[in-house]
Design a protein around this nucleic acid. Structure first.
Lengths: 195, 195
DNA sequence: CGAGCGCTTGATTGAGTTCAAAAATCGTGG
DNA sequence: CCACGATTTTTGAACTCAATCAAGCGCTCG
């Protein structure tokens, strides 16, 4: 099942099937059951993940035991914990599987290593990183400026398909509000629509 | 005054003085007065900035006219508005100068262009982008989990020198609280230290 | 020197949290 | 396939942290 990642590359780079297959040939697949831990805070691990199918989440746990979701990663997304995989430090965050999930494990030396086969991949990588930053800046802007309701409306616009798959309390955790508050926000929105 | 950026590159890459000077030779310097606009939301502009001296800020303005600071950029920092400079879209944010500031203007084609002179620069760029993401994730985590006081304490630890240079109301805007609240937080902290 | 801006302080308000408990939904084993 | 326990969502009531509104002070800079 490396095809998906090969396709992902082919869609974004002007390369042949052969190049794509050669590029991904050294990679491994890994499967996680719903609820299974992928990475623990404090771990030292050098892999990034491309999600073939399923759904991962990256989150922190604060002193009071509350979880805070940094990022969701559904199929065709990359998920990387930078502290451990780029900077060789203990991971700041946890990663686990929200659904049964299949990932391509991308080792630290993958991108440098295949630049001989597919030189353009470095620039693709740069573009994807810029894109991540762009989205995270928008999220920061949301967290700085928006009310609970605005955050939720923004979320369902941006991730309509996640809204159905992710339990509400996790969406609340991603938005920085309590599950109770999100429940009330949804109730209010429902009322507004019936007048 | 391109030396600073040349030094910046030399500190991070195993290159000669000559290579560094050659790399930066095509770049231009620009100066901004305190308070001057560098980029308006909605602008289409392809440059990134390396700050030689002074201090820039990147911010949004919401429907109620309130400013929200996405990022500060003091000397030796890069500041890039990605919508406009990477994705050719109207800028989502404003940039202006908090102090008199001198920047190196880095055109869109700079990094691709000099990869012939200094091939390692692409990988440096990737590393810096990962680092940005890392910091932004930590910030998101703060905004999701921390009280006004915790945010402020975190800020003065992370940016001790900015604490003195940036007006308080801007720090408040960066932290996602009102100037009044920050004033009270500081008062409380001062009291705690005198017992 | 005075107008404007930034910071402080006080009083009040309000959005969202907390705590508690009921209702709904999910999943798993018999 | 149903039943039961666990988890998730909803609802209610009290509370709290930070926002808002308003006023006063002090500094700077034109």
């Amino acid at each position: 099942m490396l095809d998906k990642f090969a396709n992902y590359l082919k869609e974004r780079l002007a390369i042949t099937d052969e190049q794509a297959m050669q590029a991904v040939s050294c990679l491994n697949i890994k499967k996680y059951k719903k609820g299974q831990k992928v990475l623990n805070a404090g771990d030292l691990r050098s892999d990034a993940f491309f999600v073939n199918s399923g759904l991962l989440r990256c989150f922190s746990i604060d002193e009071k035991g509350k979880e805070h979701i940094i990022q969701f990663a559904p199929e065709n997304w990359m998920l990387t914990e930078r502290d451990s995989s780029v900077f060789n430090m203990p991971s700041a965050f946890y990663i686990d599987a929200i659904e049964d999930t299949e990932v391509v494990v991308i080792k630290k030396d993958f991108f440098p290593g295949i630049k001989n086969i597919v030189p353009e991949i470095l620039e693709l990588n740069i573009l994807m990183l810029h894109n991540s930053i762009r989205f995270m800046q928008k999220r920061i802007n949301m967290l700085l400026s928006a009310s609970a309701e605005e955050r939720y409306l923004n979320f369902i616009n941006l991730y309509p398909n996640l809204t159905l798959r992710v339990p509400q309390w996790m969406i609340a955790s991603y938005l920085g509000i309590t599950p109770e508050s999100l429940s009330r926000v949804r109730k209010d929105l429902a009322n507004k629509h019936f007048r």
